[in-house]
Design a protein around this nucleic acid. Structure first.
Lengths: 343, 343
DNA sequence: ACGGATATCCAAAGCGCTTTGAGAGGAATT
DNA sequence: AATTCCTCTCAAAGCGCTTTGGATATCCGT
């Protein structure tokens, strides 16, 4: 039922060559002929066989990624949301994914296999760490890739898309300081991930500019789950001198933190202020919290879409995209921030 | 660098035909010859080119799925976890995924396109509703598929993997009744999804067996987010005659419910009992809740793995798997359930 | 010793596409 | 008028695999 190139060419009284060229945008084909071809494609519903294309061109029309499998990382809400963005864009170009799950310790092998398999045209890398060895590895693999996030300490000569975590948390902390807060806590993501480090750095910088220091007792690093947010906040509140404000690296963490605060009988935005980073997870909107959350916002999904665009553009050699992008997060003020309580 | 069949055959002094047959388990090849071939494969690291195989066989070595895009469904924790299971199994057989995002209203078109594209060997379907029209559609598509969940009202002649939701919630409700609870609430998933209906049914049945009825005011349906769990529970607690126990369709909902309960100053397992369905999400373990949760447990990830196994087995015509499976959830008692409070 | 199984192996024909290398025709140049 | 140069089109090779339809050799019973 499905037509192939040969039949299409016959139908048009043209050669396969010409039809193929017409479809793939080669210049040496009459404009009128091209129109006829396109028309016929529309009528017949012709779709090129991807396997054949791949065999002929060597291109796989698919992008590979390694799905980290480790408690708290895999099947992460954040991962799923990002994936949705990638997929949304990929499908427009009829691209596939090869999802390759792997334990973190086997990642290197997995990447190599993936690259060598010929099953993918490009790779995608995330969960960046400081001095991440995977970057050097990917460079050596001679296959295009894009990194979501940035390493630290590594030379910057690789393609990435990251958000400006430092500035985001700098801005957030500064707002709190302006509101009179002096003791600000941080519930951060895993310590070894570079975005966590940058966020902390931004916060430290803002404090320093006002002659304040970050109290180590007011910093917690953990996986970004509700439970961890809850426990971290509880710990802060038991402190002899509890914080009057807290920054959370995710709305998921904020969920737990809010719970702990409520449980302690404190009022958010009043007794204690809270700013969370918002990845724009559809299931967890900051405006739906009992007290709407002030956030630094940057859509994870949009990042996925953008990365897919760049990757695919690169493979198809269409369009020209910057190799490195740093997105600025928006600071959106809602009800969870208020002036520091007078003691 | 990578060897192909031709080179391998040359190396062995055999024809491509024989090598191919040896590799694909055809009988008409000498056992000794086969050993030689396998040895050579090991030494050279030969891996067949998937595009070529696909072109020759028509098999795509990939399974397609439509990723629902709608707030609260896409990038759902549950979806991600399930996907991880699928991926884990698929990669063992060098299978891909084609993730095709689609708005619910376009799903039918998307499925058709996917099936017609020749890019997938099988389809996967989830988020089943009552009288789900997609089943009839998939049957008409002449492409293998497996359903995660079951429809209701539809004839049962399609391949599925489901958990016994009815029994799970029947068991859970019965336990609560045995503990003396009479007013039991339900925080359920979306009303139109068949698993929600079945869970409610199970609960109703258990109550009925003890001469009790389910109070409509004690039932809430919603997306399975923390926020909805919280709001639902709050509503219940404001009731003139609040429940002494509650069933939650997900630990995510339980998260919110627990928050509401704590906030009301009630003690879980004491003033109010709670049982949640546990999909074994790594980021939300019932035993890590401030009061460990009694749950009905069934791993979503394992379900993903199983479905991939069946799908791939079917495509490769290897192994014989049951067409329909109904898994029983385990009822695991922890600290969140206790005798009904004496009034 | 011979026709017919049986066990192994092979040459060659595709699968559906892209791409190389040329050819035909007409316009422009000399 | 002859030559060059475009523009547009095509035939055919090839991507790496599976599979059809024989070959060839060995072995069986009679």
């Amino acid at each position: 039922m499905a037509v192939n190139l040969k039949q299409l060419a016959e139908l048009l009284g043209l050669s396969q060559t010409t039809v193929s060229r017409a479809l793939n945008g080669y210049p040496e084909v009459n404009a009128e002929t091209r129109q006829r071809v396109l028309q016929a494609v529309r009528e017949t519903g012709y779709r090129p066989n991807r396997a054949a294309q791949r065999l002929a061109t060597g291109r796989a029309y698919s992008i590979g990624m390694v799905m980290p499998i480790a408690p708290g990382i895999d099947s992460d809400v954040h991962f799923g949301e990002f994936l949705a963005g990638l997929a949304e864009e990929a499908v427009k170009h009829d691209f596939h994914f090869v999802l390759n799950p792997s334990a973190p310790e086997d990642e290197e092998v997995t990447f190599r296999r993936l690259a060598a398999s010929g099953n993918v045209d490009a790779l995608f890398l995330a969960y960046m760490r400081a001095n991440d060895p995977r970057i050097a590895m990917l460079k050596s693999l001679s296959i295009p890739f894009v990194v979501h996030g940035r390493s630290i300490g590594e030379s910057r000569d690789y393609p990435f898309l990251d958000i400006d975590n430092t500035t985001a948390f700098y801005d957030a902390a500064r707002l709190l300081i302006q509101l009179g807060h002096q003791r600000i806590a941080l519930i951060n993501g895993p310590e070894y991930l570079s975005f966590s480090m940058r966020r902390k750095k931004g916060m430290v910088r803002a404090l320093a500019e006002h002659g304040l220091a970050l109290d180590d007792a007011l910093v917690e690093h953990s996986l970004m789950t509700d439970e961890h947010g809850y426990r971290s906040m509880q710990r802060f509140l038991q402190h002899v001198q509890p914080p009057t404000a807290v920054l959370c690296s995710s709305t998921v963490l904020a969920l737990g933190a809010v719970r702990a605060i409520n449980q302690a009988g404190l009022k958010i935005g009043d007794d204690i202020s809270l700013i969370a980073h918002d990845d724009v997870l559809p299931m967890l909107k900051p405006e739906n919290f009992s007290v709407p959350l002030t956030t630094t916002r940057s859509s994870l999904r949009a990042a996925g879409t953008r990365i897919a665009t760049r990757l695919i553009g690169g493979i198809l050699k269409r369009g020209d995209y910057p190799d490195q992008e740093l997105w600025r997060a928006e600071l959106i003020v809602r009800a969870s921030t208020g002036p520091a309580p007078q003691k």
